[in-house]
Structures are given as structure tokens and as C-alpha cells.
Amino acid sequence: MKLIVNGQSHEVAAETLAALLTELDFQGGWLATALNGEVVAARERDQCWLVEGDRIEILTPMKGG
């Protein structure tokens, strides 16, 4: 299935957001996720089913002013 992750196209086997993070080797309790512009809480990721063309954002703490 083809997904857009952080603006880049990825061909993945994962069917849930939780599985996607594992497949792409994203680890850490500090990550924030959104699916098609809507926030997905960490506890909801294994119930968050993905479909072809979904846009996923994976964000992390960064320096800021």
C-alpha cells in the first residue's frame, strides 16, 4: 500500500498506524502522529487503520523559539 509519510511516498505492508511506526523504525514515546490532518493519540494507533493514499505526519520535539 502506498502512503505519504512526512511528505514522502512510502510503499508499506503495515495496515495500522502502530504497525507503520514499527515498519519504518520510528520509536519513542515522544512522537506525535496525525492522519490526514487529524491527531491520532498514541493509545489509538493500533486501532487506526490505514488506506491507500493516506497522509501521515510523524512529529518529534525540536528546538523552538
Binding site: Q27, G28, I58, T60, P61, M62, K63
Partner: peptide, 16 residues
């Protein structure tokens, strides 16, 4: 602090 796209599997943000 801010939130930005993670590029290295969560490691750089984790360190910060």
C-alpha cells in the same frame, strides 16, 4: 520548544 517532522526514526528528537 516546537514539533517538527522526524527524519531519523525518532532518535534526534528523543535526544533533544
Amino acid at each position: 520548544v516546537s514539533l517538527r517532522r522526524e527524519t531519523s526514526g525518532g532518535k534526534s528528537g528523543g535526544q533533544f
